[in-house]
Amino acid sequence: MSEVVNVQLISALSKAETAAIEAEIAHLPNRESAAISALRIVQERRGWISDESLHAIAHLLGMSAHALDSIATFYNLIYRRPVGRHVLMLCDSVSCYVMGYAGIREALIEKLGIHEGETTADGRFTYLPNVCLGACDRAPVLMIDEDLIGNVAPEGLDEVLARYE
């Protein structure tokens, strides 16, 4: 990579993003250790991690983009492809399975017209499977963005989805 390209890539991170990442680095022994936090910080603002974002973060942390990509692709909550305005995660682990996960999944696929890993044509929802969300007393459970929604029933899905435009 040439110096000129690097300058452009650094400018791809906003001041706020850079400041938030530097704040993480401040309590760690070295810059690369902030890799996952940095990916999260940028994703929070941009929805996903593009190649451009990846290169900019790698440069800020002083590591190669390939090394950072091997980390980014390990973690299921880091998105290397664009997602919709809302990310819907349906728990498919054992308690939800016992409490009727299959029926919720079927209804979701029908209502959204997409399968796991896909985004609706209008860019409203991305549907992802997720492991146990830690609310098993309210199974079946799903999470939309940062909202945990329990005791989900197929007939109540319309009302839940309507809250997210």
Binding site: E32, S33, A35, I36, F74, Y75, N76, L77, I78
Partner: peptide, 20 residues
């Protein structure tokens, strides 16, 4: 805040995740 994956609960995997 973790980036996901059940294996992070294993204590040495957790330490690698903590190290980024």
């Amino acid at each position: 805040r973790s980036g996901g994956r059940y294996i992070c609960g294993e204590e040495t995997a957790l330490l690698n995740a903590l190290e980024g």
